[in-house]
Amino acid sequence: MRIGQVIGKVVMSQQDPAFKAARWLVISPVDSADLSTACKKTPPLGKQPSIIAYDQLGAGMNDVVGFVEGAEATAPFDKPTPIDAITVALFDQIHYSPYPGKTA
Results as ranks from 00 to 15, higher is better:
V10L: 15
T74A: 14
V88D: 10
M61V: 05
L35K: 01
D78N: 14
M61Y: 13
V65Y: 09
G8E: 05
I83D: 10
V11D: 00
F91I: 01
G46N: 06
S32L: 07
P82F: 06
K79S: 12
A53K: 05
D16G: 01
L90N: 12
P76V: 04
P17S: 06
V11E: 04
A33R: 10
N62H: 13
D78T: 13
M1E: 13
K79Y: 08
S28P: 03
P43Y: 06
I52W: 04
A71V: 09
C39Y: 09
Q14E: 11
K79A: 10
A21E: 12
Q56G: 04
A89F: 14
R2G: 06
F77E: 07
A53D: 07
G4F: 02
F67S: 07
P80L: 09
D16Q: 05
P29L: 10
N62D: 13
G66Q: 06
Y96F: 11
V65I: 15
L57A: 11
G46I: 04
D92S: 13
G58T: 08
V88C: 10
A104G: 03
P98S: 11
L25M: 04
K40P: 01
V26R: 03
S32D: 08
I7S: 13
I51H: 08
F67V: 07
F67T: 06
M12G: 10
Y99T: 14
G70Q: 14
K47T: 14
T81R: 08
S32Y: 02
S50Y: 09
G8I: 09
I7Q: 04
P17H: 00
A75P: 01
T42Q: 13
F19H: 01
Y96S: 07
V64T: 15
Q48H: 11
A71H: 08
Q14F: 01
V68Y: 07
S36I: 10
D31G: 15
S50D: 11
A38V: 06
I52P: 04
L35Q: 00
T74W: 01
D63C: 13
W24F: 15
I27C: 04
D31M: 04
P100D: 03
P44Y: 04
I3V: 15
Q93C: 05
T103C: 03
A53R: 06
P82M: 10
I52Q: 09
A59E: 03
A18Q: 12
A18M: 05
P44Q: 06
Y99F: 15
G8N: 05
K9V: 00
K79I: 11
R23A: 00
G8S: 08
I94W: 10
G66N: 07
I86A: 14
Q56H: 13
G58V: 09
D78A: 13
E72F: 05
V30T: 11
M1I: 15
L90F: 07
H95A: 08
I94S: 08
Y99S: 14
P17C: 01
Y99H: 14
L57N: 09
V10N: 03
Q15D: 01
D16C: 01
A59D: 04
P17A: 05
V11Q: 03
G70P: 08
Q14W: 00
K79Q: 12
I86E: 03
G60V: 09
R2P: 00
S97A: 13
A85K: 07
Y96G: 02
L35R: 00
S50A: 10
G8F: 08
A104W: 05
Y96H: 15
K9S: 14
A73F: 12
